[in-house]
């Protein structure tokens, strides 16, 4: 667990995401209650908590897959809760990896990786393909570049999904339970990919219950319950000495 030295430290002077007074309701259900959170450049944060605690909703609010009802979210200083061209541009710096991969099934691995760079950023096809090959190589999937997603295992698909996100050069990557839909023997290959990613210094917000991963790469663990952040501390402090009763109960249940 001392490998963390290989991971570059975050830059505490540079906030990437600033969330103030965030509230979200689904009908009368209060999913997020006045969340305040600042994420700095290069920080790696693990969010955990019981099902329905609001952790997924929180990261989905950051890239506007969910619309918050109240509060503000700044990405690189740009308010993203309003529909503006600047907001769209700022959100291009935010990538997301989903629990169910959400690869485009009718496109090859390579086309999955080049669609956004060629259409959104106007990269030419050759340039985009070269970059995609390089990134696929990094996640160990380059030899599958011409296959379709359905021909791959879950772990392989998730690594492709990570590569697809990386092809847009995001400053921040959001992970929404990236290993939860995988068979146990495939969890490790995805986590290894994520650890490598952490070493590159990219900012990561990761909803996961993989404690080994949290200890290995995260500086902060946020524990959410009923839409509130109950603990915001280091992984070691959280897993070894949870302060709140609810965190203790939660940890007892997942251990």
């Amino acid at each position: 667990m001392t490998q963390k030295s290989a991971v570059p430290p975050p830059d505490k002077r540079r906030p990437v995401i600033e969330i103030r007074g965030l509230n979200k309701w689904y009908g009368s259900y209060h999913a997020l209650r006045s969340i305040d959170l600042t994420v700095h450049q290069g920080e790696r944060i693990v969010l955990c908590g019981p099902s329905g605690s609001g952790k997924s909703t929180l990261i989905r609010c950051i890239n506007q897959l969910e619309r918050p009802n109240e509060g503000s979210i700044l990405v690189h200083g740009v308010e993203v809760t309003r529909d503006t061209a600047e907001a769209d541009k700022a959100l291009r710096e935010v990538g997301m990896v989903f629990q169910h991969f959400n690869l485009f099934p009718h496109m090859s691995v390579l086309d999955n990786c080049t669609l956004a760079p060629t259409t959104v950023r106007g990269e030419n096809r050759r340039q985009a393909e070269e970059k995609a090959h390089a990134i696929l190589k990094k996640v160990g999937m380059d030899n599958h570049a011409h296959k379709y997603p359905t021909q791959l295992s879950g772990g392989q698909q998730q690594r492709v999904a990570i590569a697809r996100t990386l092809c847009m050069d995001p400053q921040v990557i959001l992970f929404d339970e990236p290993t939860a839909a995988l068979d146990p023997e495939m969890v490790k290959e995805v986590l290894d990919t994520m650890v490598n990613l952490a070493r590159s210094g990219v900012t990561m917000l990761c909803v996961t219950h993989e404690m080994g991963f949290a200890r290995q790469v995260a500086e902060r663990v946020l524990f959410l319950d009923h839409g509130t952040v109950l603990e915001d501390t280091t992984p070691d402090a959280f897993f070894d000495n949870p302060r709140t009763e609810r965190a203790r109960n939660f940890l007892n249940q997942i251990l």
């Binding site: 890239n63 506007q64 897959l65 769209d88 959100l91 291009r92 935010v94 990538g95 997301m96 989903f98 169910h100 959400n102 690869l103 485009f104 669609l115 956004a116 259409t119 959104v120 697809r164 996100t165 847009m168």
Partner: peptide, 23 residues
């Protein structure tokens, strides 16, 4: 078409027309 496909398009910042025509 599964909701996840629309979400992936949005998360990648695809233009609406691209998302519709290509995905």
């Amino acid at each position: 078409v599964p909701k996840g496909q629309y979400e992936a398009c949005k998360a990648l910042g695809l233009h609406r027309a691209t998302a519709f025509l290509k995905v």
